[in-house]
Simulated assay, not measured.
Amino acid sequence: MVLGNEYLKVVEERFQAVKDLGDKTIDQLAEDDHQWSFNEASNSIGVIVKHLSGNMKSRWSDFLTTDGEKPDRNRDQEFENDISSKEDLITTWESGWITLFNTLNGLTVEDLLKHIVIRGEDHTVLEAIERQMAHYAYHIGQIVYIGKQLKGENWRELSIPKGKSEEYLREKLNSASPTNVKNEI
Rank of each mutant, 00 (worst) to 15 (best):
L169N: 04
D88S: 13
S58M: 12
W97P: 03
D62G: 10
R156I: 15
T179K: 15
K50S: 08
A137E: 15
G54Q: 07
E13N: 12
Q77A: 15
D32L: 10
R59K: 14
K24S: 09
E166K: 13
Y136E: 13
K70L: 14
I129H: 00
E78M: 06
W97L: 07
S95I: 02
D32T: 12
R131N: 06
T124P: 00
V181W: 11
A137L: 15
E121I: 13
L3M: 14
A30S: 13
V117T: 15
P161D: 07
H51L: 10
T92P: 06
W155P: 11
N154T: 02
S42C: 10
P161E: 05
K19S: 03
G163A: 12
G141N: 01
G141M: 04
L21Q: 13
Y138I: 03
E69A: 11
K114S: 05
V117C: 04
M1G: 15
K114I: 02
G106D: 04
L113R: 08
L173D: 01
A30M: 13
R59P: 09
S159N: 13
G4W: 05
D122M: 05
F79L: 09
L173S: 01
S175C: 02
E12R: 14
Y7N: 02
I98A: 02
G22V: 11
K182P: 12
Q16D: 07
K24R: 09
E153W: 12
D82Y: 12
E110L: 03
H135M: 04
H51W: 08
G106E: 08
H51Y: 07
L150C: 05
K50H: 11
I160N: 06
E40R: 11
E13G: 13
L100D: 08
I185T: 14
S175N: 12
A176E: 12
T179A: 15
T103F: 00
I26E: 01
E184N: 14
M133D: 03
S44L: 07
S61V: 03
W60E: 02
N102T: 05
D111V: 01
I83S: 04
H34M: 09
Q35V: 09
A176T: 12
E94V: 05
W60P: 02
N102Q: 06
S159V: 14
E40I: 05
V10K: 15
G106F: 02
K86F: 03
S42H: 01
